[in-house]
Structure formats: structure tokens, C-alpha cells
Simulated scan of single mutants.
Amino acid sequence: MLTATAITLAGLGAALGLSSGAYTSRIQKAHPPSGRRIEVGGYDVHVLEAGKAGPPVLMIHGASANAREFSWTLAPRLEKDFRVLMADRPGHGHSRRPPGAEALGVQAAQMAGVLEQLAAEEPAIVVGHSFGGAVALRLALDRPELVKGLVLLAPVTHDWGGDGHAWYNRFAASRLIGPAFSQVVPLVGPSQVGAGIGGVFDPSPAPEGYFEKSGIGLLFRPPAFRANARDVRVLDRELAAQSKRYGELSMPITVFSGSKDTVITPAKHTARLKKQVDIDLIILPEEGHMPHHKHGPDVVDAIRRLASLPGSR
């Protein structure tokens, strides 16, 4: 016979499931999959597109985000002269998540599939923000023939000696309690996200309407929240191995780094990358972790410059 406690817990779990399901339905109606779905390795990748002709540019978003991050920032500045592809990473936005997708090599393989199917005519300029910078670097290492140049925005590039992640990622990433814990996230996450947004932009102010324009609410769907947690929980270990290969990179690389970035400390990442690879490092004074917002024109100029260099597949 079920105890009163068991009945109560079962009822609570059912209520949380219904609540998170309602949230998921509501947020996906607000931010539907408005791009193209392509199959890579048996799993759909959702890709937003802008521009119909010109050199290809693939943009890879960071943690806690999705492809919409670029749709109203960089893409409008490029769409007249470039084919811009903005891909949701595995398990984020509206992309499905293959097994083992917390590995940078798996994420890079999904991005490689996007280029192979949508930009087969010539190598692309690959833009990566934060976590997306790590994926962009892995794509360039594993499939250099697909990449003409890299533009990295406040990238995470190296291990930093510890997980350094928020307590909730530790719980959400757990295979044992993660599914149950993540059911609570839609109830509390959206109301708490304001401080986090302010922190990534600091010392610059967050743009008006950033939460809605970038579809940040998609993060708080339980499967997406767990995917994000698993990604960041293993990132330190992944980068410890990946960074040993950076000497293999031969394509031109431009890196934008905010001097006041407290999310990805430049000294632990971009400064170390510069010691291994010949990069064009642009230090932005009084800038935080989101350089493509305030310094969008400079980022676009860098993309144009790399795209104009000679070289083909």
C-alpha cells in the first residue's frame, strides 16, 4: 500500500510535470522553430538563415542561449552580402541532442553537417560566442577544410582548473535527480534570470528586450536546461584535451575580448590562446562578455575582412 508521503510526492511530481509542460508549450509558441531543420547523423539541427547569396558565415551560440542570439544583432548587418547560418547547438533552441553531445567533438560534428549540407560551395567564416567559441575551434580542428577563418567572441578556450559552475547545473546535470530537479526550473528560472543577464553584459547595460528578442525563455524547458548543464559541467575537462591541439590551426583567427569580462576571464582563455596560435586579438576596454552587441560593426568588419582573403577548399 502506498504511504501518505509517497502519494504526496507522486502528486507533487505530477503537478510539476504539468506545470513545466504548460511552460514548454507556451514558450515554444512564443519562439517557434522558424528556421530550417536538417538531419545530421540522424538528429535534426535547427538553422536560422539570413541572406540568399555570398560567402557563407556560420554562427554558433554560447551556453544558456540559442541561435536567436545572432538573428537581431549580427545577421541584419551581413545579410545583404553573405549567407548567414545560425545553428542551434544540440539540445538547445530547437535542435535535437545526440547521445554524448556534451563532448565538443560531437557538437562540432553537428555544425560540420550544417556546412556540408547548406554551404558546400566554399569554406565558411565561423563565428563562435563564449561556449560557441570552443565548438568553433573544435570544428576548425576536426574539419579544417570547411573553415576559411574564425571570429571568436569572448570565447572559452582552455580549462581553468575546476568546474566553477552554479550549484543548479550540478543538480540538473545529474542523471539520477536531474530530470526531477529540472521540472522545477520553469517555475523559478524565468523570474531569476534578470540578474544573470545583467552580469554577462556588465559593465555595459543589457539591450532593451534582450530576453524576448534572444528567446532566452527556451532555456528553462527541462530538457534544454539539462542539456545546458551537462555541457558546462564537462567543459573544463573537454578543453584540457582540446587545447593541446591548437597548434594545428592554420586559418586566420580574430578574437574579440572584453577587458571587463567576468564570465570568461581573458587571462585564462584568450591570452593563453594567443601564446599558442597567431591570432588577431582585439581587446575591448570597458566591455563584458557580449561584445557582438555594443561592438557589432567591428565584428562585422572582421568577418568581411576574413571573407575577402584569398583561399578556397
Rank of each mutant, 00 (worst) to 15 (best):
A14F: 05
W72Y: 15
G215S: 14
V114W: 01
T73R: 05
D202M: 11
G194W: 11
A87E: 01
G54F: 10
A136Q: 09
V234L: 12
S20W: 04
D81H: 02
R233Y: 15
S95C: 01
Q107S: 08
S64L: 10
R305C: 03
K148T: 03
I38G: 01
K80G: 10
T5E: 15
P144D: 10
K268P: 01
F220A: 08
G196A: 11
A271C: 00
T254L: 14
L235N: 13
S204Y: 15
Q110A: 03
K29I: 05
I197H: 12
I264E: 09
K274E: 15
P98S: 02
R226D: 11
F171D: 12
V193K: 11
E122I: 01
A229Q: 06
P32I: 00
G128R: 04
I282A: 14
P266W: 04
G199A: 15
G198D: 06
L18G: 09
S20V: 06
A53K: 09
R138C: 11
S259H: 09
Q110I: 09
E208K: 07
I27K: 02
L58D: 02
N66I: 01
P55T: 09
E287N: 12
H289E: 12
I282F: 04
G149E: 13
A307L: 01
G93T: 06
F131H: 11
E79N: 07
F82K: 03
P203L: 12
P99K: 09
I282Q: 15
D278N: 11
E287K: 04
F211G: 07
M111R: 00
G194S: 10
G54A: 10
R68Q: 08
K294I: 04
S250D: 15
H289L: 07
D44R: 07
L219I: 03
R36C: 07
E208V: 14
R138V: 14
K268S: 14
Q242V: 05
S191C: 13
